[in-house]
């Protein structure tokens, strides 16, 4: 659990438990914010908005995806951090909550565009059948289209999560990076990505510490690989069902 590779009086320790917890905490927090907002926006675009409004909003959401992560992190420092500090009366706002909010902003465009595609590719006959039975448009959306598009939506959320887990700069700048197991969202956390970013520049080549950082990279690679594979498989299965 403890990561302390530069201990001078005791044996150096190379445990990455706290980082894995930190990574998942920040990513799951981000999903908790991004999933409802993202699916809500996608449903709005596919079912409520007029074609003209949709043509305007879709590129605007894409702009959000184009903002470099370091700019998002910068806003975490200058705006979200102080705001959190004020709301919760804590000395500084660089913590897991800050990271989650920023990662949510970055994951939303992915979730919106893939969920919208999924909702759009629900066959028309499903919608028509529901409306013909006297369902309102809302009932059709909530009880027919969303369940039918569920695997596409799940894939969208998994991809958003993959992005959140692998994001470096935003969390590096906004979460405070304290090395301890976090107890809540107002604690500072350190993720796997940030540990690599902070320490790789300072370690001598070919030491245990150096290889430990690459090992973190490997764990990170495997985790994102699994998350992406699952979303790929879910998406594939869903495309088959639709066809």
């Amino acid at each position: 659990m403890t990561w302390n590779p530069t201990a001078s009086y005791t044996e150096p320790e190379y445990g990455i438990g706290a980082m894995i917890i930190g990574t998942f905490m920040v990513s799951i927090g981000a999903l908790a914010i991004a999933v409802p907002l993202g699916i809500g926006t996608a449903a709005y675009l596919s079912d409520v908005a007029s074609p003209r409004v949709r043509e305007i909003i879709k590129p605007v959401v894409e702009i959000l995806a184009g903002i470099p992560s370091v700019v998002v992190g910068f806003l975490g420092i200058v705006f979200v951090g102080p705001a959190i500090a004020k709301v919760f009366h804590i000395p500084n706002g660089l913590n897991a909550l800050n990271g989650s909010i920023l990662l949510a902003v970055m994951a939303i465009p992915t979730i919106v565009s893939i969920s919208e595609d999924a909702l759009k590719s629900v066959p028309r006959s499903f919608t028509e059948a529901s409306l013909a039975l006297g369902g309102t448009k809302w009932q059709t959306l909530a009880r027919v289209k969303i369940p039918a598009a569920m695997s596409g939506i799940i894939a969208a959320c998994m991809l958003g999560m993959g992005r959140a887990i692998g994001e470096t700069m935003t969390v590096l700048m906004a979460t405070g990076c304290a090395q301890a197991v976090p107890h809540g969202f107002l604690d500072s956390v350190r993720t796997m990505t940030t540990t690599i970013a902070i320490e790789l520049g300072e370690v001598p080549f070919n030491t245990t510490h150096y290889y430990a950082l690459f090992a973190i990279g490997l764990v990170l690679f495997i985790i994102t690989f699994i998350v992406n594979m699952i979303s790929e498989m879910v998406l594939h299965k869903y495309q088959k069902v639709v066809k």
Binding site: G166, A197, N228, E232
Partner: peptide, 14 residues
């Protein structure tokens, strides 16, 4: 290729 596009950027850095 699809999986490579999901690899975190810091891993590319390593």
């Amino acid at each position: 290729i699809r999986n490579l596009s999901g690899v975190p950027s810091i891993v590319y850095g390593l």
